[in-house]
Simulated assay, not measured.
Amino acid sequence: MRKNGYTYLITILVIAVIVIAISYMIGIFNNNLIIYKNERDSIQSGMYAESMINISISDYDKLKEVCRKIYYDGKNDFLNIKPEYTVDDIEIKKLEICNDSTFSKNGFLITSVIEYNGIEESCFAKGEIVNSLFTMGKSILNPRILEGDEINNLKETEIDFNDANKSIARVIEISQDCYMKKDGLNIIIYTEEIEETEFGKTVKENILHKYSCYDDIYLKQIGGTVAIEDVVKIYGIVELSSVYLYKDIEIQGILNLKGNINYIDSKAQINVKGITINTCGNSENNLNSEYDFDLVNRYSEHIKNFIRPKINTIQKSLPEI
């Protein structure tokens, strides 16, 4: 009896050890399974967070639109860019874009926060809003100093006037031969007419435009020739296709040069502070241009491709500053 009892006791102990071992192994397996599932869901959640960024930037026209909005309308605003449709298991906690110059001047930051199966992951995209043509510090943009994609980029650069923009006080179009000179605190653009009188022939000035020399203007030449008779200063955007210089003209803003510069006095110059756009590669004799981003930016809403978003990096975390 003692021997049988001892055998039973040993058997029970062995079975207990086996049960404990199996339970322990099952526990480890379950824990590993949970860890694996969490890791898988975490990876999947991170992939979804990155996918939401890729979806938000896939429509480039829409990206340009939102970048234009945050650049001009709200320097510190966060703009919601959530897509209309997503996977049922995904909850988009945050998908927004904002101005952020922490890592690059005139930059933007897209933040994506996704929850998938109870696991929250983030992803970030950093980029630049402003077309690199206007931030490289070059005072004159022409095909001779640019290369590759920059030349195609330059060809897309056009002045696109919008009446809703308030940086320009008035638009002046020139379509015939005329003269420009100062008249006190005003600038006048006029033509000359010869009149026959009883005393002989006289020259009459026919004023086409008269405006304050402090106004921001968009001067657009669509025909004729402009002769600069006095030293004048213009604030705004000037498009010139045919000009004769008797005196200097100073432009604070943007010169869009569409033709060669002719001069009567070889010392007379066009002096630009801002930027000169010379898409056709016209002669730049008698042109002095000094780069000033603040002046370019002041009238930038009228430059068609000034806003040209570029993604620099997409990553799961932001480095500490």
Rank of each mutant, 00 (worst) to 15 (best):
E128I: 11
D248T: 07
I277S: 07
I97G: 00
M47A: 11
Y211A: 02
D177C: 03
V113P: 06
E250G: 08
I222P: 05
L185N: 13
D163N: 15
E195N: 14
L295H: 00
P143M: 03
D149R: 11
I222N: 13
D215E: 04
R308M: 09
I97S: 00
S242G: 08
K233E: 15
R2S: 14
G281N: 08
R40G: 12
P309K: 04
A16E: 13
I43V: 08
N206E: 08
I90L: 11
Y116W: 11
D248E: 08
Y24P: 06
N4H: 10
N99T: 03
E229D: 07
N162A: 09
I22S: 10
T135H: 13
E50C: 10
G27P: 08
I264K: 14
K94Q: 09
E193P: 04
N165E: 03
N206M: 05
N54Y: 10
S58Q: 06
K82Y: 01
I275G: 02
G46M: 08
N54M: 15
Y72K: 01
P319H: 12
D177G: 03
L13Q: 10
K37D: 10
I90T: 05
I159C: 07
Y60K: 05
V113W: 06
N282C: 04
E96F: 00
V296L: 01
I119F: 09
I43R: 11
T313M: 13
D100T: 06
A21S: 12
E65N: 07
S289L: 01
T157K: 02
E158M: 09
E147V: 15
D89M: 10
K166L: 10
D160H: 09
F293W: 05
E320D: 14
I129E: 00
V17D: 12
A227L: 13
E147D: 15
S300C: 07
I168Q: 01
K258D: 14
S23H: 08
V66S: 00
N80C: 03
V19S: 04
G148E: 11
G253F: 01
S300W: 01
K75E: 08
N142P: 05
N30M: 15
V113Q: 15
S112C: 10
K166M: 08
Y116R: 02
N162C: 05
N152P: 13
K304T: 00
I159N: 02
N153P: 03
P83T: 02
N297W: 03
I35G: 13
E196W: 11
K82V: 07
Y85I: 15
S51K: 12
D294W: 02
T202Y: 13
K316H: 15
S104L: 12
I237C: 07
K181T: 12
L109Y: 06
L133R: 10
S289K: 06
K273S: 12
S139F: 06
I194T: 10
I35P: 07
I303S: 02
Y263C: 05
I10S: 13
D100A: 04
N260Q: 12
G224K: 04
G107A: 13
D177P: 04
L255A: 05
L9D: 09
